[in-house]
Design a binder for these strands. Sequence first.
DNA 1: CATGAATGAGATTTCATTCAT
DNA 2: TATGAATGAAATCTCATTCAT
Lengths: 196, 196, 196, 196
Amino acid sequence: MPQILDAALEEFGERGYGGASMAATASRAGVAKGLIYHYFPSKAELFKAVVRSCIQPAFAELERLVVVWPGPRAELLQRIIEFGHTRVGEEPRQQMLFKLLLAEASRFPELAEFYRAEVLARGLGLVGQVVRAGVASGEFRADAADEPGLAAVLLAPAAMGAVWRLMIGEDRAPDRQEMCRAHVALALNGLRRQPG
Amino acid sequence: MPQILDAALEEFGERGYGGASMAATASRAGVAKGLIYHYFPSKAELFKAVVRSCIQPAFAELERLVVVWPGPRAELLQRIIEFGHTRVGEEPRQQMLFKLLLAEASRFPELAEFYRAEVLARGLGLVGQVVRAGVASGEFRADAADEPGLAAVLLAPAAMGAVWRLMIGEDRAPDRQEMCRAHVALALNGLRRQPG
Amino acid sequence: MPQILDAALEEFGERGYGGASMAATASRAGVAKGLIYHYFPSKAELFKAVVRSCIQPAFAELERLVVVWPGPRAELLQRIIEFGHTRVGEEPRQQMLFKLLLAEASRFPELAEFYRAEVLARGLGLVGQVVRAGVASGEFRADAADEPGLAAVLLAPAAMGAVWRLMIGEDRAPDRQEMCRAHVALALNGLRRQPG
Amino acid sequence: MPQILDAALEEFGERGYGGASMAATASRAGVAKGLIYHYFPSKAELFKAVVRSCIQPAFAELERLVVVWPGPRAELLQRIIEFGHTRVGEEPRQQMLFKLLLAEASRFPELAEFYRAEVLARGLGLVGQVVRAGVASGEFRADAADEPGLAAVLLAPAAMGAVWRLMIGEDRAPDRQEMCRAHVALALNGLRRQPG
DNA sequence: CATGAATGAGATTTCATTCAT
DNA sequence: TATGAATGAAATCTCATTCAT
């Protein structure tokens, strides 16, 4: 059954939900078509199972880090941004998951809700927490705490970088490292407490 | 024939490339299936024609504005950012186009290339030009001119906002106005010349 | 399209609704599978179309006869009974129709209703009319007009003969002519006005 | 194993032979699919076993009654007819059995033969015996003994009543009691010795 | 220009049946 | 006895595409 999920992930990833074929998935997995239906009642259920199987506690590491971070918040924010640019879409399974979410979320409300709750909301919470802590400690300008859209703006460049890479390929998309550097610079400058 | 393209846009937009059906497109357009093949040799060609038909000189206005802008670059940049947040994905046709690009670009290299050249590159060029002008005029910090990823970072929040809205719906996605305000603030603060 | 209906009638008749196959129907008809779906949206619709195509004004002849009959009602009743025994299930199309109705009516409410309204009710009406006329003319015993189940009882032997023939074959079922003779005798004796 | 037969009866009764599924039968019975095959080599054999399990000595009571009946034959015949109308298709198991026989007999020759020998022939024998006895005793008209189709005609209304109820439902079919009354009246009148 | 009958490959899904445990 | 994983054939249905008219 894990082999079926693996095969299905590949197939869905390569062809999308609509383009994927149960027969191809079965033969990728080296099993008979019927066996898939022994475990999953339909293509849609298989798809959701595949997505579920890719969910990983990606944020756990960061969330722990935020809690125990001893140094300045600016540095923590930098780490988070760098983590976003380097780690997002690095592992193939995660990359496929993101691709599927991107392409099919609008046709699978459950998927969209999962993405909102498990990925977006956690990411926003993480960043928002750091920002507020930095404001409280006086590192960041005070009004940053009152900008409800700030977390999303801080998250967006890393996410959009991944989207661009998926859409037009790693080689033609904006360079990962360059975006990362500029992102860090803009964020830290943009949050710095104003002189005078 | 424009009716066919309109119908096809709706159909592709609602069902995606794989899910769209020529028969449904024909009946949406009120013509016979055969007529579609009179104009378009295949489903894939119809799809590309649909995408092409949605291309609009979205950047033309901005590109002109950048050239003739009389005031401070900060204000120009603010206008561009605001334009991005409010206009991107506002018109239904543009929204569908973006959705299709997002979902199918990886399976239609021509589409991806079109997006890269006509949308991404022009957008990056636009923003980059403003940044360099602002640096030249002393409004923005000098090292902003040497950050090749900066334009992408400045563009990303507006783009990602549109992606989020497509994925999880206007109502559950991060608020458009809040993101816009935070985006402007972060960008202007982040680019400001550092006090000596 | 008539060839499809003919082929479907054969297929459904031989194999029943559940056992019939669209592929077999198509190849019987000498057309491609897909063409059937060009005309009929589903197997169930094809089935109903087949049934509809078999409906014939079987009772029209008898209904006219009842109206204009000049002689004694007993003789008319005898003719109707004989018609029932000899004609029902004689023509192959009608035989198949009856078989299908019998076997599938309980799973196709529309079919059951059609049978009730177009076959059973008309048959009962016909017989009831003759009985009442015979009572009115004094040929039949008076209380026959007050027995609401009589028409069904008079119809039943002919119908049940057809059912038996379908179930166990013409050769092993009760003999058609013998049943017919006994039926006529019982009916005419049973309706005769009582002496004294 | 009785649970399997019960479950199979329900399943076959609801869906017919073709529509019934071994998996559904197994889950109705609360056992695994494999276990059914432990007892029954195939779906067809299970079906026949189900039918066999429903056979009950329905006629035994009547056959005994005919032998020992002390009173007039007319009264005995009336009882038999009333028994037919009230008892046939009363118990759900018998009803399902009849339904299955009706629908599938033509595709299961063994079933048809079983029905002919165990149901039809015994019923005809029973009625025939009573008629002959009544003729011998002078209660019934003499020529009734020479009508080979008479028994079938006398049996038919009760049987057809059950068929109609199965086809179009108890509520829309001819009323059971009304048919019974008319049947008794017609039979007794129709068999009465003619006045000189 | 325009139709729609016709095709045939391929999609998802069901299901009786087998078999190792 | 009993399970349930596994199979593979066949079922219904869809759909892009062709072509005679």
